[in-house]
Nucleic acid binder design. Structure first.
Length: 564
RNA sequence: CGGGGCGUGGCGCAGUCCGGUAGCGCACCUGCUUUGGGAGCAGGGGGUCAGCGGUUCAAAUCCGCUCGCCCCGACCA
């Protein structure tokens, strides 16, 4: 295509609204434009990239036998009420009414729709297994959209659903997906890894996230610097730095107005890790006492995983009412009738300091075994940088990452509540066992920008670039330049997607724009090289330059592409 | 939902504290010169200063309300 005929609105200056690199470059390179918070128009160049990503995903899905559907974006209240998610999804769901005042939503995901199809159409074990997928828009009224397409309110997702007879079948479908996903992200040119994850609202057993390291990411992942241990911070485990204080008798100490761990530690001239944090949580009106080391933080996702949902911190009033002391001075010693859950790091520890359940007093010398009864020890703490790896001797690091894909074993969660069954060989009715697998297309695009871009702009890998080759005649008023440019354009167009920059603008502008939009290969035709009968080939990613005769271009390009 | 920042030609910003009728750079249009990394000179067009209300002789500027956008947190298949 000729650049002069295309709509590629590049920007010279960075819009103030964009902070992260991918967001800035997507705007500057003319890939997207904002319409509202979390809502973007995708312009032709951006759409070409997404379609190429989509093509790779489609090929890999078809390869594992998946079948593509086109499913409704509008969904009825009844369907979502069946699984309880009409309520559970809360404000994240876009809701609307039709002219008959019937409640509808814009689907944020499609488990319900798929399960409904399955229960209506799947009768026998002979119909299984199935893998059904779609590549469509999803709608979520995110509380906080950010970084343009990294977290938008409408976005394109490839989601697939596996339907199997039993857990073994699910294992097979799940493995097929994990392998397909690895091929997809590899073909897209991303450096990625998988981590164990939290299943959240989806329920189910196994869950893995496909992550791309990036400071723009919203997820935090834990990595061991020696072995291959990797996990989402929500579920990560590590070995904390050891403590081991001397056993002492219990003793109250006056700590006027000292509430926070740092305040108490500073006042008593001890390290924060000698303190024991006492938190009161409420689960469905029942209080639960949580104990952690003073230098550790509670990971609520872990607490939820161990003792169930509907958790919240108690209000100051509730604390006073249940414990009889103010926040900051509460402790487990002498407390009765409340379930106490302590973090594993506290097991067997002694000589600790915690609240005395009396205003302005703490107790020191607390011995977990001697002075209180802990109902259960669980891993509740958030892993911190510097912990020792559980698998080896390595040190734990925490990095930001973009989640580009997620796989879940749903099991029978949806088939059970929606009664999606099949008849087995003996005619017995059984529940379909399901899995759910998502990929965010815009996130692949943005993660690629984050991971590959340099100071001059975007660097697309050949597999997803909007064009493979940029032909750049520097001076379109120079007849020999134009002649050679047009010839190359003709000659190479059967092998490459070509962007031909026929604009009558200055050379500098063409170079800057070309680098910005990140076309992998460039042929520059300028009078300087033409004097010796040469043109120039440049590789965007490495900035390597090759000076060749026009008739050698084809062969040289082939060699460059093959070596990539 | 809590905290912070911002809203002035298409883009980036100054002007706001201390009220006096809107300016700079880029982009755009015309002409001439220029042509290998976002050119030079000359001329020109374009702004209800987010919106509504108030104070004042006078409001981009002061006061009140509303809306929008971004960032941090909470939250999130």
């Amino acid at each position: 295509m000729r650049w002069s005929k295309l709509f590629i609105p590049t920007l010279k200056e960075t819009p103030a609204e964009a902070e992260v690199k991918s967001h800035q470059l997507a705007l500057k390179a003319g890939l997207i434009r904002p319409l509202a918070s979390g809502v973007y128009s995708i312009l032709p160049l951006g759409w070409k990239v997404l379609k190429r990503i989509e093509g790779i995903i489609r090929e890999e899905m078809e390869r594992i036998g998946a079948q593509e559907f086109f499913l409704p974006a509008l969904s009825t209240r009844e369907l979502w009420t069946e699984t309880g998610r009409w309520k559970d999804y809360g404000e994240d769901m876009f809701r609307l009414k039709d002219r008959k005042d019937r409640d509808l939503c814009l689907a944020p995901t499609h488990e319900e729709v798929i399960t409904d199809l399955a229960r209506k159409e799947i009768r026998s074990y002979r119909n299984l297994p199935q893998i059904w997928y779609q590549i469509q828009m999803k709608f979520r009224d995110e509380p906080r959209p950010r970084s343009a397409l990294l977290r938008a309110r409408e976005f394109i997702m490839k989601d697939s659903y596996s339907l199997d007879r039993d857990e073994e079948g699910l294992d097979r479908s799940y493995t097929l997906h994990v392998e397909a996903y690895k091929r997809i992200f590899t073909r897209c040119g991303l450096e990625f890894f998988t981590v164990g994850a939290f299943s959240g609202l989806m329920g189910g057993s196994a869950s893995e996230e496909f992550m791309v390291l990036s400071p723009a990411g919203e997820d935090e992942v834990v990595l061991c610097d020696k072995c291959s241990y990797r996990a989402n911070l929500d579920v990560a485990v590590g070995v904390p730095s050891p403590i081991g204080f001397e056993d002492q008798p219990l003793q109250e100490v006056h700590t006027p107005e000292m509430k926070r761990v740092e305040e108490v530690a500073g006042f008593l001239k001890v390290e924060p890790k000698q303190l024991m944090k006492s938190l009161l949580y409420i689960q469905d009106k029942t209080p639960i006492f949580i104990l952690l080391r003073g230098d550790h933080e509670l990971k609520e996702a872990k607490l939820t995983a161990h003792i169930g949902g509907n958790l919240r911190p108690a209000t100051p009033e509730e604390v006073l009412k249940r414990i009889g002391a103010e926040i900051g001075f509460i402790g487990p010693v002498g407390v009765e009738g409340i379930h106490i859950v302590a973090d594993l790091a506290l097991k067997g520890e002694k000589g600790l300091i915690t609240g005395a359940n009396r205003k302005d007093y703490h107790v020191r010398g607390v011995n977990l075994e001697r002075d209180l009864y802990v109902d259960e020890f669980q891993d509740l703490r958030q892993v911190v940088e510097g912990d020792t790896c559980l698998e080896c001797e390595g040190r734990i690091k925490i990095e930001k990452a973009i989640e580009v894909g997620h796989t879940f074993k749903l099991g029978k969660k949806f088939s059970k509540v929606m009664k999606a069954t099949y008849a087995d060989e003996k005619g017995k009715e059984r529940l379909i066992v399901m899995g759910s697998y998502g990929i965010g297309l815009e996130r692949i695009m943005f993660a690629t920008i984050e991971q590959k871009a340099d100071g001059d702009g975007i660097v697309w890998p050949l597999s997803i670039a909007p064009y493979d080759l940029l032909i750049l005649p520097l001076n379109v008023n120079h007849s020999e330049t134009v002649e050679i440019g047009e010839n190359l354009y003709q000659e190479l167009s059967s092998h490459y997607k070509i962007l031909y920059d026929d604009r009558d603008v200055r050379a500098g502008e063409k170079f800057k724009d070309g680098d910005l939009i990140g076309i992998p290969l460039r042929i520059t035709i300028g009078e300087r090289n033409l004097k010796d009968g040469n043109v120039e080939i440049r590789v965007r990613s490495t900035k390597e330059v090759f000076t060749v005769k026009p008739e050698e271009v084809r062969e040289k390009l082939k060699r460059i592409v093959n070596s990539e």
